[in-house]
Write a protein that binds this DNA or RNA. Structure first.
Lengths: 272, 272
DNA sequence: ACGTTGCTGTACGGAACCGTGCAAAGTCCT
DNA sequence: AGGACTTTGCACGGTTCCGTACAGCAACGT
């Protein structure tokens, strides 16, 4: 089907060789990988590899969006901040999406802080203007990007419900799953203090909740890390606020891709 | 500027006379009213007035979206439901938007239950297919609809933060303001039981919170109703989770409209 | 007038979670 | 090895909010 885009979730390569004729390209970002050769061709000339360290800001709330980022490796936290210094996570984005979706929805400013939350953050960045020109040219490209924005919106909706209805332990299980979906390893690098932000609770509540998840043998908590041990158990503990958006992602963005490629077991299809 | 669309928030008229030449039209929906004559012309032939009673479902979670609704009068609650019977509000939509935005974001199913929450619900409905054809033809129309979806997303983001960081009293003040923005009167028809759903708390917590708001003379609570008394005080009580999305709505959707029309004081410009 | 139904006020003990403070343990630097 | 720093474990009382239950009150039909 797509000969110039090969999906290699395991060993993505951030570098895009621009001067070449369209040969085999390695793209870790699943949104880019799902594009047709034509749509990918519209973006490719403008994509430029960048790296981020933990805590680096990818965008800042209120700033004009000057570029967008397709993550190749790593995971970004999307944070809304109150007038005081407190910030709360409204979602997570990894290689399944991109940063800067307000642009394709008619806004030119970023409503949220977006920060890198993994050790090695690799991304393909392109200027906002080039993106706008590209989506102007290709409705199918626009649609693909919109579909990601929509799924992210669904994730936010479940975050609302989760925070209204569920205990800290349950919500924690959900965030661990969201995180786990977006990293290659079973190792989640995050301190209790960082979890605190996502859940909007105090630090020691995180400690307690992690202990309870550990008692259930769902995870193993070590210093500054959580090791995912039993995904199935985590999903049972997370309950009904995990799963739906992930299924929708697969439904919307991978419906017309050849599903018989055994080299990419499509992370999100783990669900259910 | 736009002669065939007059903005008459006070006395909107649901009926659209299709057989006419483009004469003066009365449209209560602010999204429709903000469209250029050309874009409005693309939709007008398909718009059909419909009425809803309190509790009527406009869409149901999981169902395919067969039509979209531009509310003219009334207010709709957007509810996400858990596997059990409990449902929680993730947002409110009134005459400032439309129901069925997943359609313009590449989805064909409704993720949420949307139900009428006001006595008289009037809307202009059009078939999904006609809408898709129209946005295909007009990128500016598509953009306007996307901008509403984006602002709704911002509202959801603040709902997350609000439910993580704020007390019931504060969150209640926020919902009352959101509701008040979208109805013409200072009278909000809602029982404590209905508030309960939006906040995800038990019914008697609603009673208590309303009493506290009443003590502050921000509102007056009577049977099955809340009378908004002091909007400024409500905004102070709601804190920093109210205001930003409303400002963004004005910024994004009314930036290029003539702001000097004194007949329509643009509800959302009350903010700040 | 009367019962029925739906909405609101209030009370009770209990659970979840908070803010705080502090000690133990791990990590890193020199 | 020793000191500085970060991360984690834990305990305290206090607050918010929960589930539940019940009684008063308004609206409505007959």
């Amino acid at each position: 089907m797509s000969t110039i885009v090969s999906i290699t979730g395991a060993t993505p390569c951030a570098a895009v060789d621009r001067d070449d004729a369209p040969v085999e390209r390695m793209v870790g970002n699943r949104l880019l990988a799902s594009l047709s050769p034509e749509d990918f061709g519209l973006l490719a000339p403008h994509l430029e590899p960048v790296s981020f360290a933990v805590g680096d800001f990818i965008t800042r709330a209120g700033d004009p969006i000057e570029s967008i980022c397709f993550l190749e490796q790593g995971i970004a936290g999307v944070l809304d901040s109150l007038d005081d210094d407190r910030r709360y996570a409204v979602g997570l984005v990894g290689a399944e999406g991109f940063i800067g979706w307000p642009l394709v929805m008619g806004d030119d400013r970023s409503p949220y802080d977006v920060t890198m939350r993994a050790e090695r953050g690799e991304a393909l960045r392109m200027p906002a203007k080039a993106l706008l020109a590209a989506v102007d040219q290709s409705p199918t490209l626009h649609l693909t990007l919109l579909r990601f924005a929509h799924v992210f919106m669904l994730q936010m909706g479940r975050t609302v419900v989760s925070s209204l209805a569920h205990s800290i332990e349950r919500r924690m299980a959900r965030w661990i799953l969201l995180y786990h979906d977006r990293v290659q390893a079973d190792e989640i690098c995050m301190t209790h203090e960082e979890f605190r932000l996502m859940l909007g609770v105090r630090r020691s509540s995180v400690t307690d909740a992690l202990h309870r998840l550990e008692e259930e043998h769902a995870i193993r908590a070590v210093r500054a890390k959580v090791l995912v041990h039993d995904r199935t158990k985590l999903m049972a503990l997370a309950g009904d606020t995990y799963g739906q958006p992930e299924q929708d992602y697969v439904r919307l963005l991978e419906m017309d891709r050849n599903a018989d490629d055994p080299s990419n077991p499509a992370e999100f299809t783990k669900v259910r």
